[in-house]
Amino acid sequence: MIAEDSGMLRQMLVDLLTRHGFDVTGQASTKDDIVAQVDRDPPDAVLLDIRLPPG
């Protein structure tokens, strides 16, 4: 999963990872959204922006 508030950077990361054989199972632009996705379907790893809105 990828959590990044910049849509362009998030999409670039998704494209890069999928080209190299990784499955990106979720994307989020807010803290609340990524927490909900991780709770619903825990991934093997999360690439996380440490300054996600809100807060």
Rank of each mutant, 00 (worst) to 15 (best):
M1E: 12
I2G: 01
I2E: 01
I2M: 04
I2A: 02
A3H: 05
A3E: 04
A3G: 10
E4L: 02
D5S: 12
D5N: 15
D5W: 06
S6T: 11
S6E: 15
G7E: 13
G7A: 13
G7P: 06
M8W: 09
M8E: 11
L9Y: 04
L9I: 15
Q11E: 15
M12C: 08
M12W: 06
M12L: 15
M12S: 12
L13S: 03
L13E: 02
L13H: 03
V14S: 05
D15G: 13
D15C: 07
D15K: 11
L16M: 13
L16T: 11
T18M: 07
T18F: 02
R19I: 00
R19W: 05
R19K: 13
H20Q: 11
G21Q: 07
G21N: 07
G21W: 07
G21A: 07
F22D: 00
F22S: 00
T25P: 06
T25F: 01
G26C: 01
G26T: 00
G26D: 04
G26K: 02
Q27I: 12
Q27L: 12
Q27N: 00
A28Q: 09
A28C: 09
A28N: 08
S29V: 03
S29A: 11
D33T: 09
I34T: 01
I34M: 05
I34L: 04
I34V: 15
V35S: 06
V35F: 12
A36F: 08
A36K: 13
A36D: 12
A36V: 00
A36R: 14
Q37K: 15
V38H: 04
V38F: 06
V38K: 03
V38R: 05
V38I: 15
D39E: 14
R40E: 14
R40H: 12
R40I: 00
D41K: 13
P42W: 08
P42S: 08
P42Q: 08
P43E: 09
D44P: 02
D44G: 09
A45W: 14
V46H: 07
L47E: 03
L47G: 01
L47C: 08
L48K: 00
L48V: 00
D49W: 00
D49V: 03
I50H: 06
I50P: 07
R51D: 07
R51S: 10
R51W: 08
R51V: 07
R51P: 01
P53Y: 06
G55L: 14
G55S: 13
G55M: 13
G55Q: 14
